[in-house]
Amino acid sequence: MKSKLILSLLLLSTFFTAFSQEKTSQNTKTTIVEKGLIKVSVMYPYAEGKTFDMAYYETKHMPMVAGYLGENLVKYTIEKGLASGIPNTPLPFMAIGTFYVKSLSDYQAAIAPNRDAIRKDFANYTNITPTILVSEVVK
C-alpha cells in the first residue's frame, strides 16, 4: 500500500512538473514573438453625447483596415471600455482597437492610400475622433 502511494505521488509530481515546464515554455515563446512588434492603438475617448457602434466596428471597420495591412499584420484586438480604474470616475475610453504589425514603414505605406476611406467609415460607427498611439512592444 505504501509503495502504491509513493508511486502515485511520484506520478503526480512528474505531471505537475511537466505541465509547469510546458506552460513556461509557451509563455516564453509568446514573449519572444511579440517583442519588437509595432503596436498601433486607436483609442476612442469617452465623452457625454458620444456614440460608438461596437457591432459595426467589430464586423466591418476593423476587418476592412486589417485587410489593407496584409502580411504585415500579425494580429488585431478590439476592446470595449467598461469602467475607469478609479471608482466613480468616468470611463476614459469607449473602445480601443489595436493592430500589431511587423513594420512601421509597411504599416504607414498600407494606410496612406486608404486613409480617406478609413476616415470616411468613422461616420458609420462613431462620432468620436480617435487618439492614436504608435508604440513598440518591449515585453
Rank of each mutant, 00 (worst) to 15 (best):
F52L: 15
K39T: 09
M1R: 13
L11P: 00
T77D: 10
L37D: 03
F122E: 05
E34D: 14
P63R: 07
I132V: 14
T24Q: 09
M62L: 15
F93P: 02
N88F: 15
T30P: 01
A117E: 08
D106R: 11
N127K: 04
T126V: 03
L12V: 10
A18S: 09
F99D: 04
M94I: 08
G49D: 11
M1D: 15
V33H: 10
S25N: 12
P45Y: 07
I86V: 12
D116A: 13
Y76A: 10
R115C: 00
A66Q: 03
A112C: 04
F122D: 04
T30H: 06
L73C: 15
V74I: 13
I32K: 15
L12Q: 09
L37S: 08
L9G: 15
S105K: 15
L91K: 09
P87H: 06
E34F: 13
F16R: 09
Q21T: 14
M1H: 15
V74M: 09
L91E: 02
E22A: 13
I118C: 01
A117C: 05
K2G: 02
A18T: 10
T51Y: 02
K102A: 03
A55S: 11
D53F: 01
S8W: 03
M43P: 02
Y125M: 06
S105L: 11
I128W: 03
T129M: 12
T31Y: 05
A117Q: 11
A112S: 12
M64E: 05
L9H: 06
I118E: 00
S105F: 06
D106L: 11
T30W: 04
I78R: 13
L133A: 10
A66T: 05
L69F: 09
L91I: 10
L69W: 09
P92S: 05
M62N: 14
M94R: 09
A18K: 05
K102W: 00
V134E: 10
L133R: 10
A47M: 01
F19C: 09
V101R: 07
P130M: 07
N124M: 09
P92Q: 06
P92Y: 03
F99S: 06
E48Y: 04
A110L: 00
I96Y: 00
P130N: 07
P130V: 05
T14F: 07
I96T: 12
N124Y: 06
S20F: 08
P45H: 07
P45I: 06
V65Y: 03
L12E: 03
L91S: 00
M43T: 08
L104N: 11
G97R: 10
L73H: 14
T14H: 02
Y100N: 08
S41M: 08
R115T: 08
D106E: 13
G85Q: 05
M43K: 14
P87M: 08
V138N: 09
T51W: 00
M1N: 13
A18M: 05
K102Q: 11
I78L: 12
K120I: 01
I32E: 15
S20H: 13
Q26Y: 11
A66G: 12
L69T: 11
R115Q: 09
E79K: 14
K120S: 15
Q108F: 00
I96A: 07
I38E: 03
K139F: 05
V40A: 07
